[in-house]
Amino acid sequence: MKRSFFRNNSILLGLVFLLAVVSLISLQLGSSFISFERMINILVGQGTKSDILIVTKLRLPRIILAINTGIALAVSGLLLQIVIKNPLASPSLFGVVDGAALGAIIFLVLFSSETGNLVFPVEWQPVAAFLGSLLAIFVVFWLTILDGRGLSRLILYGICFSALATALISLLMIIGPIHRASQAFLWLTGSVHAANWQKVVISSSALIITAPIMMLLSSSMKQLMLDEESAQATGLTVKTSLVLMVILATFLTAIAVSFAGAVGFVGLLAPHIARFFTPSHGLILLFITALTGALLVLGADFLGRIAFQPLQIPAGAITAFIGAPYFLFMLRFKNVFHRR
């Protein structure tokens, strides 16, 4: 028991350290390199105007938004995998992501004037996306309740909603002007390039509000490894915790995709990677999953920014391309994930 305690803590510390390093590097690197010295100057208020602008207005919010997005998606994926009891469950299967996409694209297409300008400022796009994801949550939950055969049916109605949303999206993209369609596609890929402090504040506060609930739910998460009757018999209020977990998961996904678009595969990958690091099924797993997710999105965004300069690859593209090899990996090491 002692050994696992140290092991868990060193992994946690290692991940935090890694996250700090990657953050720092991605703060420095980019179209212009900012040295340590200049960074310290900015910190003590001595930096040049352009340095301050680049760091505080462009890179810092982008980094924090990437971290927030990663945490939200990863935790959401973990919760959903536990609720559905299937290691392949991920936030994108519950209609929330496609709902957000639909909202964002309706905004882009409907509020474009003839000349191709937006009638509303683009800052309103996340609001539209959030409304879209709320609609998805509402419809999918309503159908699941109507169905009354348990939460695992969420996934089926999520698929239904996604199909309809995707159809509407393709219809709208064909009706709308072509440059809007390509803008919409960019959104669908998922990227944190349009980060600003407003988004950072909103997404951070959402995470801070939900964090205590997540931590309180962590021991229930562990207990849900058992079948529902046994879990109930050991004292867990199964229904309440399942419902709480799903609501939390969809809310987190909605927050993440509203600001960063449909960054795929983080919710699927992060919990699996985290399980590789720790035998824990509770609080430690939750923390490691969150950190892994943050690292994934931050790393993907950093790579996309640096690797193909001056071209910027959206973070979602990178995470998707990590997803593919992982898929093969799962094929190869199937026994790790095989559950009876």
Binding site: S90, L93, S152, S182, T189, G264, F265, L268, A324
Partner: peptide, 24 residues
Amino acid sequence: QSTLLLAGITLSSFLSSAITILLA
């Protein structure tokens, strides 16, 4: 049952994101 479906949808969603990237 659900594994087949999830496998299909996950692969589809991977391919669609690849498609989206190519198109974007």
